[in-house]
């Protein structure tokens, strides 16, 4: 038995310890917002926050996530909800499939860096593929979120 902490809730699951966290989340815990895109850590669709850091959940054995705080797209982080609002406002998504992973990567960035440069955004988001090509709007939505935060502070 493995006990996971997903979005603040304890989940005790009976799976092989080497099962990737992605499949434990999707098929066992039953949260399908985290996506399978490549299975080998190349596309970022499966990103979740593990103790605040963005990780590709297809590459993490579920045993390695035990005792850690896992935040998925269905969960909350300091910046995730604000980013989601910006994403909607700028109509970022096309097919939408990669966007949970994009949002998790963006949330991890803003959680650590309140005012990222374009280069820092590129660096944080380089692991996330969008086949529809929404990159330009993703960048704009991140900048927009930063602006919203700055406004609410001042």
């Amino acid at each position: 038995m493995i006990t996971l902490n997903v979005n603040g809730e304890k989940q005790t699951i009976d799976v092989a310890p080497e099962m990737p966290l992605l499949w434990a989340i999707r098929d066992i815990v039953g949260l399908t917002g985290t996506k399978y895109g490549c299975g080998i850590g190349l596309c970022g669709s499966c990103k979740v926050l593990m103790d605040g850091s963005p990780v590709q959940s297809c590459m993490i054995p579920v045993s390695a996530a035990e005792g850690k705080s896992i935040i998925t797209i269905e969960g909350e982080s300091e910046n995730l909800q604000l980013l989601q609002q910006s994403w909607v406002e700028l109509n970022v998504a096309q097919c939408g499939f990669c966007q949970p992973g994009q949002l998790i990567a963006a949330a991890a960035l803003l959680d650590k860096n309140e005012n990222p440069t374009e280069e820092e955004i590129n660096e944080a988001m380089i692991g996330n593929i969008c086949r529809c090509g929404t990159y330009q709007r993703i960048k704009k939505a991140i900048y927009h979120t930063v602006e919203l935060k700055n406004k609410s502070v001042s």
């Binding site: 949260l31 399908t32 917002g33 985290t34 996506k35 399978y36 998925t72 797209i73 269905e74 980013l83 989601q84 994403w87 909607v88 109509n91 970022v92 998504a93 939408g96 499939f97 966007q99 949970p100 949002l103």
Partner: peptide, 16 residues
């Protein structure tokens, strides 16, 4: 998009 909210909160249902 009528699906904009669902795309960003993980509730959009794709085939998978």
């Amino acid at each position: 998009s009528v699906d904009a909210e669902n795309y960003v909160n993980g509730s959009a249902v794709f085939g998978l």
